[in-house]
Design a protein around this nucleic acid. Sequence first.
DNA 1: TTTTGAGTTGTTCGA
DNA 2: GTCGAACAACTCAAA
Length: 485
Amino acid sequence: MASKTGFDDDNDRPAIVWFRDDLRLGDNPALTAAATGDREIICIFVHDEESDAIRPLGGAARWWLHGALQELADDLQRLGGQLWIYRGPAAVVVPQVANANNAAAVYWNRRYGLGERHADETVKSALKAQRIEARSFNGHLLYEPWSIRTGSDGPFRVFSAFWRTAHEVGAPERPLGVPAQLRLTRRRCASGPEALDLARLALEPGSPDWAKGLRANWRRGEAAAQAALQGFLQEHLTDYADIRDFPDRAATSKLSPYLRFGNISAREVWHAATAAASASNSSNIHRSLEKFQSELGWREFSYHLLYHNPQMPKQNLRPKFDQMAWRADRKALRAWQNGRTGYPLVDAGMRELWSTGWMHNRVRMVVASFLVKHLLLDWRQGESWFWDTLVDADPANNAASWQWVAGSGADAAPFFRVFNPILQGEKFDPGGEYVRRWVPELASLSASDIHRPWQASKIGKTYPEKIVEQDGARQRALDAFKALD
DNA sequence: TTTTGAGTTGTTCGA
DNA sequence: GTCGAACAACTCAAA
């Protein structure tokens, strides 16, 4: 109960939950901790584009963030609360808000990038200096990056050993539900930094409005994440191991943007999949479950690598790649970005990305290999484009995957492994349906021509010529990568 | 300390 | 058409 003097009574002081990459109410350890404390809870979000060490979000991710914040704000409103939104360097804003509201505690879920970690440390010491409790939790990962260790107590650099050891540590913890008792408040935040309307963050495009395709393809936020999860488990988990590689089959979970912004937690996904599998009697289910969970494992591994190699988004993990003679070719880069390389599967993928903010995983590997090997362009140029155009652009996954394709990563693909975009198309899009959907100029070609349009008798004039020849580009890549040794 | 087996996702060539 | 081997050498992880 509040005392007459209000501020002097410790029980009357609120707790703050600082939302970041955990825009959900379910399985949110920071929120649960605040609810357990029996204080009134103030929910805040800080849009920080001013801390140098924190990489600004790309355009598609900003669009996602807007919707996810809107949904979270609506959910909190329904429960009697409010999401207070601020702009500015988090290390300054959070302690100010805490101070202005006489908060007793600030809770949040951890982030793992270097700049984010530094910002959080600064906030923590500022709060402690004000005698405000500051606690952080694991809301983002199945396993903390420091908890999986090699036999000699170091971090892993190879996925399979990492994942084997993670299994030995034990199953991921069970997800928390939405707290049953939440004393949310909207009465606070009168003083201190100025809170803003979401629209003031200008996260969504004005004109030109390039987000039409994104809106048509996605629903953002926690409720949509749960619906996507259930839909996937019911429709596709059984056959996941067999058809996940076919980009026109829509057999993947498409949970990546939800996981990126924490609209759903990895723990929720993991345990829901396990439960769905044990309720199934399909003979495929075990293989499929393992395959699906290992994809979550790759996400874990990427965060493990990022945590132990903070420069990963910018620097080659293998220093010898610093000597690589990447080409400078703006025209080729532009052709790749625009989906006009003359290779149907590559172009289909790049157009799917531009149109929907997402690309099928199999096709991501093909287009990435094409940029790095066929075009000999620096993986960072591809990484930057993905960062700007993917709704699921993730600080760990994006960098780790690009470095893996380039061969500069921790566990690298052998340099002679050069994806052949024609064969990959014939193997994984045998009927050409995926190409027809995204490259309409080629829609009339037969399945036997569609991945080799140059051999077709009639081909739409608007489809570009190949910007490199397959055989020559492959040999050039092999020579360039071999020269590194 | 040394040794050993293994390493997400492929392609090509020759039998 | 199918199949196995070759494609480098290196680093990692564990014994």
